[in-house]
Design a protein around this nucleic acid. Structure first.
Lengths: 236, 236
DNA sequence: TGTACATCAGTGAACGCGCGTTCACTGATGTAC
DNA sequence: TGTACATCAGTGAACGCGCGTTCACTGATGTAC
């Protein structure tokens, strides 16, 4: 028996906890500093010296990357969990559950939302491994359409007037990711996807100030309109 | 005759030019620094000492405010000019012209776009006088719907299933800004408005990477879909 | 037209602060025999 | 079980840089008489 397999190394456990604490201190600092996060401020909050952080993250950008990864996974998990809580064949229920879950997460973590969906951080280049987690919310939405297309509920009238350049473009996505899904359906799904994040960005970045007072009702209505737009409608 | 009215004060003219140059140097620096613009970097580029900028702007935030104001006015003017170049009664032509004008401006000035529509600058609070210019693009879009509603082309079937909370909310806007416009039409117009900036933010902030290759065609199609959504359709 | 004074642009030094990162180090925890 | 050695977390000082803002100043441009 390897000693490690008997009792997990204490040092490793403490290290993992430390990483968690550093990241949550950093998340708290996103609020005040935005994306130009200060390592020294994070270290100060944890009562340690700034150079100590280099035991855990090789540079400031790596800490940022970790925050971005965590945030993508958090919003993705929220979407997936909301989806999973609905009956598989209740497409409108699943659709709206995902939209509201994403919104709830965004409202609960506005600075992380801004980190993911706001202005790109100047001088920061996201590494390749953020790509997968970044697609989780859109995959959850697309899966609904895919399910609907497979069961024949959706996409029967695949837009005949979808321009050829758009159709060809989206066809690459459907064949590799969602086989059998009509391009027209995907196009409408993307409208909904963009609308979801469009409303959230407008809400969180202040563009609905003095425009919409009841944001909850507005959001719900917009997302229901999008559900209708993609053809996901409740049984009449 | 006042001397000033004979020949415009040279000092005042030079001062105005200087302000213009400071702002354009600052605009260039938005690309590298993003919203945490450095006064010293701007001064360096202009070959002057950083304290000299205080003759023109009382603080860094005031320079930022000037950039934001100019940018809102620039995108607003682009939208209005594109609109004005179309025949008044060609509603779809006007709608698409505005969308493309906004997109062209955004692609030509991505960092200014990010300043306006990206993450809020931490610690910066926009003063009241940005509010007016900020609404120019959306007013241009809304004017089309208003014209259509007045001539009876649009909004005949004002959404009967618009939830009461949303209707009441938007009614405040219609009575004060667009008298006679049905709330349901405004709701659909807001979908289009949000979609326009939603697509642009996704494009410019990198969320369409590896998703949509032909962005021109995609954008055009999305905006035509929005034209149809609000009921602004070309004569068949 | 010419002189005296006021206005203003720009300088250069300084204040007081921040930052990311490196490096030699101490002392504690873990590992191998 | 006990000892010798390796690993690792965290320290504290330093490097070299950046920043916004203030202030007393020089010298040029404009104004009033």
């Amino acid at each position: 028996m390897h000693p490690m397999s008997i009792a997990p190394n204490l040092r490793a456990r403490v290290r993992a906890e430390m990483i968690t604490e550093i990241k949550s201190a950093a998340r708290r600092h996103l609020a005040s500093d935005g994306a130009n996060l200060s390592l020294r401020a994070v270290a100060r909050e944890l009562g340690m010296v700034s150079s100590a952080l280099y035991r855990y993250f090789p540079s400031r950008d790596d800490l940022l990357t970790a925050l971005i990864l965590d945030a993508y996974n958090a919003v993705g998990e929220a979407a997936e969990a909301a989806d999973a809580a609905q009956p598989r064949d209740d497409l409108p229920g699943r659709f709206l559950a995902i939209c509201h879950a994403v919104r709830d997460w965004a409202h609960g973590h506005p600075h992380e939302y801004a980190l993911l969906y706001g202005s790109p951080v100047p001088g920061y280049r996201a590494p390749q491994d953020t790509v997968g987690p970044a697609t989780r919310p859109s995959r959850a939405l697309a899966a609904i359409l895919h399910d609907g297309a497979r069961s024949g509920v959706l996409g029967r009238s695949a837009d005949p007037d979808l321009p050829e350049r758009v159709r060809a473009d989206l066809a690459h996505l459907t064949v590799s990711e969602f086989p059998g899904m009509p391009a027209g359906l995907l196009a409408r799904g993307m409208t909904a996807w963009i609308q979801l994040f469009g409303v959230l960005s407008f809400e969180l970045f202040g563009h609905l100030h003095n425009v919409v007072a009841d944001r909850d009702a507005f959001f719900d209505h917009q997302m229901r309109a999008m559900a209708a737009h993609v053809g996901v409608v409740p049984p009449a």
